[in-house]
Write a protein that binds this DNA or RNA. Structure first.
Lengths: 223, 223
DNA sequence: CGTAAAGTTGAATTCTTTCAAACACGGTGG
DNA sequence: CCACCGTGTTTGAAAGAATTCAACTTTACG
């Protein structure tokens, strides 16, 4: 399911781009050309509010579709910012293509529904649980998606986020993220160093997120 | 856009149901027959975690589709619970229908993307803002959707949620919801009494949620 | 009228933020 | 090669927000 989308659409993909890190692909409040497919690299979807607070809505990994938004006034409600060097594809007129390519419509439905499911899980964690569990959840959720893509190296993987990004993702201040990471490191669960994250005790970590999610993370779901 | 879905699908809708309040249509962890269309009444999508904490994921209003979830192990990740007497339709084999009815696939894509957008806004509020703003946001967001359905009576509308439901929706305890509702009532913004909510000062209320969302709530978006 | 469910209030505790300052690190230019 | 600078991380102390616990009041409903 992961790779076929690009194959289906191959003839319709007009533009390909390579983008440096910290660049903006979609800009909140502007017109959105998407949807896009991320081919390689990491990026994040972020939203700024009037007070200048930032919410990271999603971390996008290779193979994922992003930027399929029903617009408010036709404008994007979030920005897409690269965390690393990225390669992306643009599907310029996805809406029109849908009528002639029902499989694209199905795919977009499936993508949105999957994003929705993931966001529901994040919302639950952020809304109901404390800093430690939120961070544990994020690490395990990422680890699961990275493993599906063979982007891990055993219990280790690249982790391009700053502590402030984690905070804006999980609804915490960078200061509190720092303290929480320390606690988790001291407990021997995982540690981050030089943008590399290492899980030292997977079982203890997954115990933090509860039994149901533990099963979710253990199982290989097609992305 | 709101009403056409049912018309498109009319020949394929097999079952119709009337359901009492506080009944469970989808049960977390069980197989899900959906998707469904809510014809009348209110219901909510809720998720329980291992510790017994509950997250309300969405309030579903008449005309909306719910229960289109890519399953974990084929099982529903949330329950659907009626808040009032409801009338619903079931679209039994939506996935198969999609191949012969591309407009259904498009509709489901659009529904999921809209749900995702709404959830992103809730996540931002819950993650970044305090109790007062969360509650204000919920009231305005509901008011907007109710107005689209002519389910308001001026600045007044039926409000079937208990304070505990609000808490589980917004990530607050029922105790704190109570105190927050009091504060907002004393400020003359809105009040709830006998399951009827009255907005006393719309402008002041919408100032609480910020300029961008204020515009969002002011505009009539097709649902 | 009586019971169960929902709402209200206070006081103590816990978690998180805020503010401020110090520290570490990688890169740049002298 | 080293000093310098900016970005990101670390730490402490005080303030603030929300939770917990417990008791009490009100409302809904048979």
């Amino acid at each position: 399911m992961l790779n076929t989308l690009r194959q289906d659409l191959e003839p319709h993909i007009i533009k390909r781009k390579f983008v440096e890190e910290k660049q903006r692909l979609i800009c909140q409040g502007s017109h959105n050309e998407g949807p896009y497919i991320l081919q390689s690299g990491w990026l994040m979807l972020t939203r700024l509010d009037d007070t200048g607070k930032r919410q990271v809505l999603k971390l996008v990994l290779p193979g994922e579709v992003f930027g399929f938004q029903p617009d408010i006034h036709g404008l994007a409600i979030y920005s897409a910012v690269t965390l690393t060097h990225c390669a992306i594809c643009i599907i310029p007129s996805a809406f029109q293509l849908c009528s002639t390519h029902p499989e694209l419509a199905m795919r977009l439905a499936w993508v949105s529904a999957s994003d929705l499911l993931l966001l529901e899980l994040y919302l639950e964690k952020i809304s109901q649980h404390r800093a430690t569990e939120r961070v544990a959840f994020m690490v395990l959720e990422l680890f699961r998606r990275l493993k599906q893509r063979n982007m891990n190296n055993g219990n280790t993987f690249q982790f391009p986020l700053r502590q402030e990004d984690i905070g804006d993702f999980l609804g915490l201040t960078n200061v509190h993220v720092n303290r929480t990471l320390h606690t988790l490191k001291e407990k021997g669960l995982f540690s981050i160093s030089h943008h590399i994250l290492t899980i030292h005790n997977y079982d203890a970590l997954s115990n933090l997120v509860g039994k149901e999610l533990k099963m979710y993370f253990a199982c290989e779901v097609s992305p």
